[in-house]
Structure formats: C-alpha cells, structure tokens
Amino acid sequence: MTSVITVPPSLDDHTFEQVVEQLASIPADAKLLVDARHTRWASPYGLTALLALGQTRQERPSFAVPETEDTASYWARTGFFRHADELFDLHGSVPRARAGESSVLLEITAVTKSEDVHDVVGRIQQKAQQILTKELNIDAKATVGFAMTLSEVCQNIVEHAGRGGWVGVQTYTWRKRLGNRRVVVIAVCDAGCGFRESLESAPGRVRSDRWDDAAALEEAVIRGVSRFRDPGRGQGLAGVRRYVGRWDGKVSVRSGTAKIAIVPSWDDDVPLLEKLAPFPGSQVQVTIPERVAGGTR
C-alpha cells in the first residue's frame, strides 16, 4: 500500500509542518507518494525541504507535480525538478526549465562539499548586490554580509550534516506580514544528523538534565556551541545572527522536533517551538526584508 502525503496549496516553513505531521506515522521504508498537484506556491524553504524529505526515504518515493502550469514552470525555473528527479519518481507534466527568472537569486543547488560553497558564494555575489540595493533598498555594504551568511549556513551542511543538502535563494513580495514589501530568503535544508546528534558527538560531552532538540538548538544558535572543542568554532551562526539583526531580518532553524527563531518586530513567529513532529537534519531559513524610510516597518 502506498501512503499519500498532501502538500498544502501554499508551502512555506510554517505549512511544511503539515507535511511533516503526515510523514510522522509513515515508516521510512513504506511506499510513499508526495502529492503536490494542488500546490500553487512554494517558498525556497518549502522546495528544499521537500528535497530533504525525499532524502529521508529508504524506498524511492513518488512525487505528483503541481497541475497548475505557472506553478510547475516556476518550480522548474528554481531547479527543483532537476534535483527531485534524482530522489523521486516524478508523475505529471514536468516543464522544461527556462532561464530568465529574475526572482530566483540562486537556483536550488546541492551542497555536499566545501567547493560547492565556493561555487554558491561566487555565483550569488553580483546578482545579490543588484537585488539588495535596487529591490530591497539595502546598502551595498550588506552584500558581503549576505554572501557570508549564505556561506556559513551552507557550511553547516558540509561540517555537520553528514550528508548533502540543498540551498535556494529567492526574492518575493511578502503580503502577509510586510504589506507587499520585498524580501530575500535563503533556505538551506538537509536530512542529515541534525543539531542534537551533532552536539552529542562532541568528545567528553557531559549530558545535562534537560537535553532534547530544543536544548541543542539553543546551545548552537543562541550560545554558539559546536561539537568541536576548538574555541573558534560556532562563530558561523553567531555571525548569521549578527547580520540578520543588523538588517532587521529573521533566522529560523528547525531540527528534529524543535524550531528556534530570532524574531524581528515585523513578525509574530514563536521564538521556540518544541514537540513538533520529528524530521531529521536541519532546515534553516534567513529572511531579509526590504528597507523603507524610517525603518523596516
């Protein structure tokens, strides 16, 4: 029997939880169909997280592509189907990817090794400057920090995940919270070992009374703890937090059964969510909003 997971019409970091909840009761070796036929929109987080979902399955799952032509061709332009084809048996009409999608700042790209991070950073720099300054009214100086942020979140995969993941960067208009303002979003998702397991592998680690995915995220994201004893480690995510804080952005990290977020004033997300349905690896999203006169809001 094939289990079916329905992808919500609008797929982002919040609605992906509906996918994870459906997945929770399905054994990893069960036959699975991921049904995205009625999905109309997906954020880079949604798309890269779907790829991570494919990575979790022991038996190659099936994937029903969106029926709406615009949606399917947009997903094609993000490079989603190119990677999905390696993980899923695709069903439905898969459009050919065409160039020219300006909102796709970085096509979905596989990250498995250090060279991939060089490639990602090299590809994004020029386009990022143009988008950040012209579309988001952010100082050109922010471009380097943006590339650094991208580099550090991608390196988390290389250094800690134990398997490959994906990164995607996109700009879009955020109607829900920011009143039609533009945002640029970095999403980096993998189905690797996740933060808790990574920190548990630290040599000589003493377990505390409270130790779970939420505690691991607090240690890594808030306190800059790393599995390496080297005191220079753990600076990457601290740097990401600093950058995001400077540009009134948001960063959220989901791992295992918890999600932590540095929440700016324009957003109403919860800083720490616990006891979520389990999903392996780590899923990171960085959002930088357009700047308007007098602040971001």
Partner: peptide, 15 residues
Amino acid sequence: VGMIDFSCADEVVAK
C-alpha cells in the same frame, strides 16, 4: 581577496 567569512577568518587570521 573578494570576501572572507567567519570560518575562514578564524582559520587564516585567528589561528
């Protein structure tokens, strides 16, 4: 050098 990230700065400069 175009840019340097935190991890690289730790290795090249701090160490």
